[in-house]
Amino acid sequence: MRKSFVTALVDIAQKDSRIVLLTGDLGFMVLEPFIERFPERFFNVGVSEQNMAGIATGLAEAGFIPFMYSIAPFAALRTYEFIRNGPIKHKLPVRVVGVGAGFDYGLNGLTHWGLEDISVMRIQPGITVIAPADSAQASSALKASWNLDCPVYYSLGKDEDSLVTALNGKFEIGNMDTVRDGDDLLIITMGGIVFEAIAAADMLKASGVSSQIAIVSCVNPPPTDDIVKALKRHKIVLTVEVQYVNGGLGSLVSETIAEFGLNLRLVRMGVRKHIEGPIGNQKFMQALCGLSAENIAQSALNTLKG
């Protein structure tokens, strides 16, 4: 998603001189198209994410639209208080780009995993939080949001190639997208794990279970109307995300169920444990945390059985 995002950013920067790109010394083989085209609007601030967030605040106050780029935990967590007291407090159009969603940086370990970046960002007032499902949507999400007055957080996965065909790169703020319809249960998912959810739905179909799959890519403002509408059709909903279960998509859906007084069973699938011991790549880590297609399908079947 990173490359398509940067390609779209170059197009936008071509048209709007307010776009500035900051990086905390990351983005090798990703940011070059921007750097080569707009060297005067690019700053590598060095390995200093807090300062990057402060600089972005100062630039945005002066009328620029700064994008600050780093790996998710460095972009979102190391900087968190600076983002809170900077762009959020001052309502400034700073764009925080966190790359590496969930376990994208599997073998790099916990320091590099994005397991709560979306959760902590979505609880702040006035920030738009976007987690594209694929690279086509990363591009369209940027085009739909770069000019917003408020701060924006983008969670970008590393997968450049996989595409959710039924999504067709669509993105609209405040919307949830159903990419497969079904009557027996609802799966609401977010980010690149959608491919596991789709694979799970295929397995379920083989067992005679038809699933609706919906993608939340605009996490904040939440697509409440769409979520409620979908929930009302079902008796069982599974949320599937590569974030800690407390605070993320599963929490958003449970808040919606409670606030609207809906009556259905929710299964929150996400990272539930403190990970210690051997680690592996993205697939390995997702399976370790019970987030493989097989795990999702099994969880759905178990819930259906009651």
Binding site: R41, Q50, N51, A53, G54, T57, G58, L59, A62
Partner: peptide
């Protein structure tokens, strides 16, 4: 008031952004 402050170590980073913006403009 140009920038809210109160959390030490942050105001100077806003100032760096403000100075950089002036240079860019």
């Amino acid at each position: 008031v140009d920038f809210s402050t109160g959390s030490l170590g942050q105001g100077i980073t806003f100032g760096v952004g403000a100075a950089l913006a002036a240079k860019m403009k």
